[in-house]
Nucleic acid binder design. Sequence first.
RNA 1: GGCGCGUUCGUCUAGUGGCUUAGGACGCCGCCCUCUCAAGGCGGAGAUCACGGGUUCAAAUCCCGUACGCGCUACCA
Length: 484
Amino acid sequence: MISDIVRVRFAPSPTGYLHVGGLRTALYNYLFARHTSGKFILRIEDTDRARFVPGAVENLIDTLRWSGLTYDEGPDKDGGFGPYIQSERLEIYKEYTTRLINSGKAYYCFCTPERLKELRESQTEQKLQGKYDKHCLSLSADEIQNKLNNNIPHVVRLNVPANEIVTVHDIIRGTVEFDSNTVDDQVLLKSDGYPTYHLANVVDDHLMKITHVIRGEEWLPSTPKHVLLYNAFGWEIPEFAHLPLLLNPDKSKLSKRQGDVAVEDYRSKGFLKEALVNFVALLGWNAGDDREFYYLDELISGFSLERVNKSGAVFNIEKLNWLNFEHLRQKPVHEVISMLRTELKSSDFSSYEFPDNYLAQVIESMRERVSFVKELLTKSPYFFQLPAGYDEATLKKRWKEDSHLLLSKLRDNFVRLSDPTKEDFENSLHNTALENNVGNGKLIHPLRLAVSGMGEGPGVFDIVAILGKEETIKRIDKALSVLT
RNA sequence: GGCGCGUUCGUCUAGUGGCUUAGGACGCCGCCCUCUCAAGGCGGAGAUCACGGGUUCAAAUCCCGUACGCGCUACCA
């Protein structure tokens, strides 16, 4: 037994930002760990120096933190299995590589990139599988020592045995078999002394007592190499779960060019972490019922790897929008207020002051009309400033010949109100309509236009109640002076 | 080319041999509600369950084959 508790890890490569596919992988690892009262570990796989991006690790951690997926062990949270950054574990990989070489499971390879390239080209030409030809396996001990002494650049390769069936047990896909003859002698240690993913991942998973390897489907084809490696070391093999891919609308692997893929892109567009996490969780998993709205703790209790789908899922932004709307509706007002304040700060209305109870009313009146906090500003700017103008189409439809006269009478009645409530405004308008023998609509629509400049929005009595008597009359006066 | 995985409404999916005239959700359309827009309620269009064989009294569900899609095929992860 690898460990008496579940230990899983999210092992991203810090190439700049957290990919939404990565978020989903992290989420499933997190959910599985929390569901089973296990540990969730963050490990940084930065063994490719050519792709080093400054600040990427910090960014990754920051984004993960934003999404709410807290890890138990990681670069900044030691759990006794560190370091959790692979570039800080080079000596470990070297040591284990030596073990493999000594037992004949791995060997030095001094082939130049040029020879490798030629080999590959000729294989392609003959329509053969591209595979290393074990050329350096036949080197004598003396030859090897000699080249080593002369500092000839070299790598270390896995010595894949011929004619074996390598079996991979996958929780999601069942048993998958590979013919070892189709498995390449994978490079384990690169010439710069860094390990490749394959070596580092197996060594670390073993040393960190990882019980379940939950990762993207793109890793399935290289899993036999990992199994062979575990066997070569004589280590117990963890459980595997290869997750279906997240897809572009054209069904190819989700990538940039076809839309946003970075979690921070969605974050900056105003998507709620609750919505993004909820959405991504449903891309490949469901509880077996009709439920679609979940909070993180609810996902934890319902999650199981057995219910993860096998086929890829298109990242459908429409549904994300809907979930954002649903989550925004459920959000406590005080949280929305603080988000609104952040939006206001960077808006045209940044110079105005609005008390919390005012913003709370605005939010309540607009809640069912917006999917994003920033839409509070774009869909109802009139709560933050005087109407900039009057919508043409609405004007044409709602501003009739008698509108000016009726609105001025309504104004006079509003003036007489003392500290009016929503109902007071409503009664006053009804009475005005009665006095003038017209339907309420003849007053309601011009009033809405006058105070908001638009033809849509919350109930007009809600709007005027929120704006208050003074502001309402001011706006009516302005409309009366501008519109005829 | 080789290896592997996958295939139910446009999309996310339910379905684990009879309960299925294949259910739900998003999106779309219509009606109701209504001061507008939403929300909400009701309804509609939308899937010959990739195709072809088999197994079975019975298959979207099991088996085989084919097609198509995708992934991998680096001293990248």
